[in-house]
Amino acid sequence: MDDAVIVGAEIVAGHDGSAELLVRLRHPDGSEGPVVLDEETGLKLMEACAAGSLDDLKGQSWRRIVETG
């Protein structure tokens, strides 16, 4: 199947006062939806994707999120 990919990411204020990573995914049918990653998972995802900035996450497969979680 075609993969859902990250099309955007930004920092949001988490319920517990931490900074969290909100990742927007585009699915193969063109629909989009957000997923919120806690601070630890967000940082791991950035490292796993060698992302120097949030923009560097664009184009990454949803699988990276599961792999790093």
Binding site: H15, G17, S18, L43, M46
Partner: peptide, 25 residues
């Protein structure tokens, strides 16, 4: 909602600063 952090732990507050993230990790 406020965000709080210290340099004791890495924080996504610095997500737009890759060098900071790298060092704080």
């Amino acid at each position: 909602i406020d965000i709080s952090f210290s340099l004791l732990r890495p924080s996504l507050f610095f997500a737009r600063l890759p060098r900071w993230v790298r060092i704080l990790r």
